[in-house]
Nucleic acid binder design. Structure first.
Lengths: 128, 128
DNA sequence: ATAGGGGTTCCAGTCAATGGAAGGTCAAGG
DNA sequence: CCTTGACCTTCCATTGACTGGAACCCCTAT
């Protein structure tokens, strides 16, 4: 199938699929007219990629996961290590955002939000 | 003072400060030899910027906040709107990451992490 | 023949820095 | 006076993961 159909079925923009080919994540064959031709196996890869990306795995992690996915002799430990590392990163990011949220919500609550210039948010940014 | 001292006192890399000048967030004067010269007011701005950035405000939000900071006739409502918008964005991001975390932690828990190829994580990525 | 809806490549831009190269400036020490 | 080393300067390239757009090719239907 052509890239438009592949995009529709994988739930990815065609542009993203071209990009994935560019960086070697998928390697569709070409028809005589130069059009990319996607097999069901290509589609599987693209869907897999879409899911992995939507879980926040980086492109390089996706590359590693795809390689493991294609390797019948893989050890699930290798997959788990990647996923656990990503999970840890997510936890760190959530903690970081929660800390921001904590500080920021206090400042926002303290701000009258009226026409007067006095502002606890600006004071908070000024004085730490 | 020179950029190195400004960087040390503001807690920002010198490179970042040059970048901030480049995009017009600060406009230090120049000494005869071409070196940037930072006043205490410049330093105040840089510190303000560092705090705002560490709370996750975008550069454009920082620009707007700095302008309000400098405007004695500001309405705190304008500050609050920016901060509330950012807070909402943080909440959305936390929700997104929490959803990822939820899915991913289930998959990781289900994975034996041994030498065998069977892997619930890969199956999860394959089948949604 | 032409209109449209595909497809192709390549280049630029996003965001917020960061790394590095090539070179100018300054104070201290020999 | 010269050198060393720590500063400082500008400019260009790179990051991640796309996304937008230009210019052009292909195919089908009218």
């Amino acid at each position: 199938m052509n890239i438009g159909d592949a995009a529709g079925r994988a739930g990815l923009p065609a542009k993203t699929i071209r990009y994935y080919e560019d960086i070697g994540l998928v390697t569709p064959h070409r028809a005589a007219n130069g059009y990319r031709r996607f097999t069901e196996a290509d589609l599987h890869k693209l869907t897999f990629l879409g899911r992995a990306r939507s879980l926040g795995f980086s492109i390089e992690e996706c590359r590693a996961l795809l390689a493991l996915y294609a390797d019948d002799g893989r050890a699930s430990a290798d997959v788990k290590r990647i996923a656990q590392g990503h999970l840890d990163r997510i936890d760190r990011k959530i903690a970081e955002l929660s800390a921001m949220r904590e500080t920021l919500s206090h400042l926002v609550q303290a701000c009258a939000g009226d026409q007067k210039p006095d502002c606890p948010i600006l004071r908070g940014l000024e004085n730490g």
